[in-house]
Design a protein around this nucleic acid. Structure first.
Length: 296
DNA sequence: CACTTGACCTGTCCGC
DNA sequence: TGCGGACAGGTCAAGT
């Protein structure tokens, strides 16, 4: 589920809540969701909360890190303590309807529960059980040979992600569709199915166009499209098609503003043509047939 | 080597 | 109402 903007939204919310605290207790409700030596991080102070690609991490002062991957259906919910209930499970006056709120935790998809030193709690929920939580050495994450990080491409919102870098990274693909190549975390890290579709739209590139046929101008526009769609994702608090909520249980609103994702049959926000849905390597792909023509 | 498919899981929705 | 199949934000390993 979560792509870069969703994980970034979680990171922003958690860093002020967790930095300086420690974990008192960990309850693993689903063994496959957790690996590593949980007891070794107990009582150690959290020095920072970070994100790399779609991975959320927190570092402890004793040289260990706790890392999360939410995969398709993961959620991280924070509660203040006291009754097990997300803090924003309450009526919202003049805002979004209460059905947008998360509701009670733990629930049947809760896999791991962390109790913090100030009595607040973190719930790792994951309906499909694809996600994971791990305790690792912070040092290992810095090693370029460490499996998790070695294959990751550049962070798209960092200054060193230029269109020339994107061009160089795209060299690894030739015959594959542009949209499919954006899902390769070695090309750009953090882009997933939603933002890959949006980036192609912004760049006026047909998602099925072969990478080797892109010219420099198209790669420049694609670079712009990636950066803009991700920034908009963060601006609206992420995309909540099914599962995503932030740590306070509130959904994100990016999909209310998306150009094409999940809009098949609706009219293009730019030209009014009808947005179409196709499949590329088995994944739903949305585009505007008028704004995104294959260019040769 | 380049690229695609299947598997990992649970849940929901749609057509019959 | 029930049942089977397709589909869902990700990432690997295995297959072609």
């Amino acid at each position: 589920m979560p792509e870069l903007p969703e994980v970034e939204t979680i990171k922003i919310a958690l860093q002020s809540k967790l930095t300086g605290l420690s974990i008192k207790r960990i309850d693993v409700l689903n063994a496959k969701s957790f690996s590593g030596q949980g007891q070794q991080i107990l009582k150690a102070k959290i020095t920072m909360v970070w994100r790399r690609a779609k991975v959320l991490g927190m570092d402890f002062e004793n040289g260990l890190s706790l890392i999360f991957h939410l995969k398709m259906s993961g959620q991280i919910i924070w509660t203040k303590g006291g009754p097990d209930r997300a803090v924003n499970d309450q009526k919202v006056i003049g805002g979004h309807p209460t059905k947008d709120m998360f509701g009670e935790v733990p629930n049947k998809s809760t896999r791991v529960i962390f109790e913090l030193s100030d009595k607040s709690k973190l719930y790792f929920n994951d309906q499909r059980k694809f996600g994971w939580v791990r305790v690792v050495k912070s040092q290992d994450l810095k090693s370029i040979n460490y499996g998790l990080v070695k294959s990751l491409g550049p962070e798209p919102l960092e200054n060193d992600f230029t269109w020339e870098v994107l061009k160089e990274r795209l060299q690894r693909h030739k015959k594959i569709a542009v949209k499919v190549s954006l899902l390769d975390q070695g090309v750009v890290s953090g882009v997933g199915n939603i933002y890959a579709c949006e980036a192609c739209f912004i760049a006026n590139i047909h998602p099925a166009q072969k990478v080797e046929t892109l010219n420099d101008q198209q790669i420049q526009k694609l670079h712009w499209g990636i950066v803009q769609s991700l920034k908009d994702g963060i601006k609206y608090g992420g995309s909540s098609k099914v599962h995503f909520v932030n740590p306070e249980g509130k959904r994100g609103y990016f999909l209310d503003y998306a150009f094409v994702y999940d809009r098949s049959g609706q009219s293009c926000r730019i030209c009014q043509a009808t947005v179409e849905k196709i499949k590329l390597t088995g994944r739903g792909t949305y585009f505007c047939p008028n704004c995104q023509k294959i260019f040769r």
